[in-house]
Design a protein around this nucleic acid. Structure first.
Length: 506
RNA sequence: GCACCCAUAGCUCAACUGGUAGAGCAACUGACUCUUAAUCAGUAGGUUUAGGGUUCGAGUCCCUGUGGGUGCACCA
């Protein structure tokens, strides 16, 4: 055991970590601050690489001087000179460090005290190596942050990647490593950011007002889901994290705001899998004096706008299949789809009749299922797998939607629609129920379901009913799952790939 | 929640029907002033996820826990 460590804690570390600490001490002994305050960085790497040949130094290595900063990802040292690659947020570039140019002490630091993973700033002129790679010839460099942990080293040759950092648990728990080492991950979150800003741009441009409503609510509502419960000590009472924004946004409609939207984190106390994270991002928007048909048009435009903003095209490829959001969505009613699948018109059918048809088509159902659940199950097994092309399903059965307005032509239905693409559900919209008496009856029906043992029901919200009784204009509203849209537009099959820090067991 | 699969060096992976843990990269020492999966010579690095059991002997078989993945169920 070598005994060179200058502080006792070094002995507790494994060899790799201990050596890094020792390098830190040596740097300090040389008068180098391993964590300085700032660096005058004048360009991002891709900007430097653009029009590169116009910036190249002359034969005497004289030319314009550039400074870049980023993390060291590779090092190749050959005696009195060496190469490394430095990566900033947007790109990567090779650096050439020569002893005779940066000086003996700096070169020794480069050679012995810098590591893959360190963040450095480099000043120099640019040239192409004999193989043509754009390279920065260092005049000087500065250590900007010493890394005390080894960075996973991913190598690449002719497009082939070696030793990729792929362990999902490590990638999610240490997302900073994932982002540092896997450039495609950065791109996913850039696309996600563009999706969200495109939503804002789209809605702002159409007169919608962005608002913020409580995440901490005395009563939850707006969706059928189990909430997270917490306790507010000052009031000594329980509160819920919102499962949806709906009931608050509708109160704003009552207040006379005609177009509102909110992009919010919602929380649902349910399982997590490739489509569900306990906290997720939702866009909800509401437009007064409009009905669900208006929103069908608007939402198609929104998807088109968002896809173009996020990807630069309306053509979206997901898991090897391509669709074009520029084409109008197919529009079809819930019961027409079921009729196509089963040959039977099921509008108004009883649970018993539905069960019979379901069994005939091998839909897995149980005795306890009411008509709503059976219908839902039939959709899921018989219809949804075939919905690859963008499709709007509309006119849902009343029993599934306690906050939607009854269909103007058929009281057994509600004016509700959901857009689908690649079999993925992209949203949920309806002509909002604004009849306070009907709404009260729906709440009562929900209460009966709860008494019968249903855990996911909409609790009666007296305060919300009072708002509705004050009068809400005819309104259409929509919710869009932002994470799922991000999955679709980034071609990911797991929600964890589009959430920076997905929930994991601790 | 249930079922199945997985967990070995910092990273990516080996280790046959149980026989005493190995490689590449990273690291360390040295050589090399246009390398680029740099190369060459050498060195070091492990409580095999945790705990228990079977066995002369366990990375390997059994049980339990933890974490991850996949599928089912519920939901967006």
């Amino acid at each position: 055991m070598p005994n060179e460590s200058s502080s006792p804690s070094h002995e507790d570390l494994n060899e790799i970590l201990r050596l890094r600490r020792e390098k830190l001490d040596k740097l300090r002994a040389l008068g180098v601050n391993p964590y300085p305050y700032r660096f005058e960085k004048d360009t991002h790497i891709p900007d430097l690489l653009r029009d590169f040949d116009s910036k190249i130094e002359n034969a005497e290595h004289v030319g314009p001087v550039f400074s870049i900063a980023g993390r060291i990802h590779t090092v190749r040292i050959m005696g009195k000179a060496g190469f490394c690659h430095v990566r900033d947020e947007f790109g990567e570039m090779q650096i050439y460090v020569q002893r005779d140019r940066v000086g003996e002490q700096a070169y020794e630091i480069f050679r012995h005290l810098l590591d893959i993973g360190d963040i450095i700033g480099v000043r120099g002129t640019v040239f192409r190596t004999k193989t043509g790679e754009p390279t920065l010839r260092a005049q000087s460099f500065e250590l900007l942050s010493k890394s005390l942990h080894p960075l996973p080293v991913v190598k690449e040759c002719e497009g082939q990647v070696f030793d990729a950092f792929t362990d999902k648990e490590a990638r999610y728990r240490q997302r900073y490593l994932d982002l540092a080492v896997n450039p495609s991950v950065r791109e996913i979150f850039r696309v996600r950011a563009r999706i969200i800003s495109a939503m804002r741009e789209f809605l702002d441009g159409r007169g919608f007002l962005e608002v913020e409503t409580p995440a901490l609510q005395p009563l939850y509502g707006g969706a059928l889901a189990k909430p997270f419960t917490t306790h507010y000590n000052v009031l000594d009472r329980d509160f819920f994290l919102r499962i949806a924004d709906e009931l608050y946004l509708k109160r704003l409609l009552v207040g006379g705001l005609e177009r509102v939207y909110e992009i919010s984190k919602d929380f649902r106390n349910e399982g997590m899998d490739k489509f569900h994270n306990p906290e997720f991002t939702m866009l909800e928007f509401y437009q007064a004096y409009a009905d669900y048909r208006d929103l069908m048009d608007l939402s198609e435009e929104l998807f088109r706008f968002v896809a173009r903003a996020a990807l630069g095209t309306t053509e979206v490829t997901y898991q090897g299949r391509t669709i074009d959001f520029a084409k109008p969505f197919r529009r079809v009613t819930f019961f027409d789809l079921l009729k196509q699948a089963t040959g039977t018109d099921l509008v108004g059918a009883s649970a018993r009749e539905l069960a019979e048809v379901a069994l005939k088509h091998d839909v897995p159902i149980t005795r306890e299922m009411g008509e709503g659940k059976i219908l839902d199950e039939m959709m899921k097994t018989l219809v949804r797998p075939g919905l690859l092309e963008p499709t709007i399903i509309c006119d849902y059965p009343l029993s599934l939607s306690p906050l939607a307005k009854k269909h103007r032509d058929d009281p057994r239905l509600v004016e509700r629609f959901q857009p689908f693409a690649f079999g993925l559900e992209l949203g949920n919209a309806f002509s909002e129920l604004n009849d306070p008496l009907d709404q009260r009856e729906r709440f009562e029906a929900q209460r009966k379901l709860k008494e019968a043992g249903d855990e996911e029901t909409q609790p009666l919200d007296e305060d919300f009913l009072r708002a509705l009784e004050t009068g809400m204009p005819p309104t259409a509203g929509m919710g869009i799952g932002v994470d799922r849209l991000a999955m679709l537009l980034t071609d990911q099959t797991s929600i964890r790939e589009v959430i920076l820090f997905p929930q994991l067991r601790s």
